[in-house]
């Protein structure tokens, strides 16, 4: 069920981000469904392939999409587990995203372009640096709830039930900050990367896909949005209420996704991108936030 919601969100997510940005810069901006329309248009187009590229370049977008799509099947919806759920499923979740990243990077190297190599080098480093934060956060939440799969972890985080609700709620907020940042890094948005920059030297993700066109480009763009919706769903899962009316949780889900999109739009309107050599520090900061979550969990469970 959740996969349907994620797919619905993915239809308007980037549109919402763009709309926020346009309103902040005083423009009217395109419609909310414009990015999806663009993608559909791309899917219908023919392609240009680089003469340097090989089979890898052709299959990489399909791998990228498939891994993210299957990763989306892991996300639970409140009490209901995702389509795929087992003990420690979040390990597979993270490694699936890494598989997609791997193919993305080697397909950029496949073109033999200096720009794309540069983007690939940055992207692979940044996502490596971000990885520990995800594991520490999920591990800590698992410790808090005493369970070890996505659905059980999320469904059993009853904040008020534990001894110190203030710390517990702040943990939820910290965790959503971690997921928010992970979403931004994984999708190469401001403050780590700026998708609207027009110099290849300053791009990360955009420069990797310079040579993709037509169906492949559409697939890659759509996968990016899907990834956003996926992280948004993770955040929403932190705040679901333990209620019998599923409609309330559906509302919570969509409002958090919209809030997430608005935040991304706000960040992009109000902030400039960090300098490239500061990015590692910013990303490592995320790991320290996740360590804070761990310490908080330790306090709640009474170990320190």
């Amino acid at each position: 069920m959740n996969i349907i919601f994620i797919l619905i969100v993915s239809l308007f997510f980037t549109g919402l981000v763009n709309r926020t940005k346009s309103i902040f810069s005083g423009r009217k901006g395109p419609g909310i469904l414009q990015p999806i329309k663009d993608i559909v248009r791309l899917l219908k187009k023919g392609s240009v392939y680089s003469s340097a590229s090989s089979f890898i370049f052709q299959i990489a977008p399909a791998v990228y999409f498939s891994t993210v799509f299957i990763a989306a099947l892991f996300i639970p919806f409140g009490e209901n587990p995702g389509l795929i759920s087992f003990q420690f499923d979040f390990v597979l979740f993270a490694y699936l995203l890494a598989l997609g990243k791997f193919f993305n990077v080697i397909s950029a190297l496949d073109t033999g372009s200096s720009f794309e190599g540069m983007g690939a080098s940055r992207e692979v480093l940044y996502s490596m640096l971000a990885e520990p934060a995800f594991f520490i956060t999920i591990g800590s939440l698992g410790l808090l709830s005493g369970y070890s799969s996505f659905s059980r972890i999320f469904s059993s985080i009853h904040y008020s039930a534990s001894g110190s609700p203030v710390i517990a709620y702040s943990l939820g907020i910290l965790a959503s900050i971690v997921f928010l940042f992970l979403g931004l890094i994984e999708n190469s948005r401001v403050p780590v990367d700026d998708p609207k920059t027009h110099l290849e030297l300053t791009m990360i993700h955009e420069v990797m896909i310079l040579d993709n066109s037509g169906f492949d480009l559409g697939l890659i763009l759509y996968t990016g949005i899907l990834k956003f919706a996926l992280y948004g769903a993770l955040i929403a899962n932190l705040f679901f209420l333990n209620t019998a009316y599923i409609i309330i949780n559906v509302l919570i889900f969509f409002s958090f996704q919209i809030l997430f999109a608005l935040t991304v739009g706000l960040v992009e309107s109000l902030m400039a991108r960090f300098r490239m050599n500061q990015n590692p520090q910013v990303i490592l900061m995320l790991s320290s936030v996740s360590l804070l979550i761990f310490l908080g969990v330790m306090i709640i469970t009474g170990k320190i």
Binding site: V48, S53, G112, S113, F115
Partner: peptide
Amino acid sequence: KVVTVSSTW
């Protein structure tokens, strides 16, 4: 569709 092969951008 038209699929062309060209040099890298």
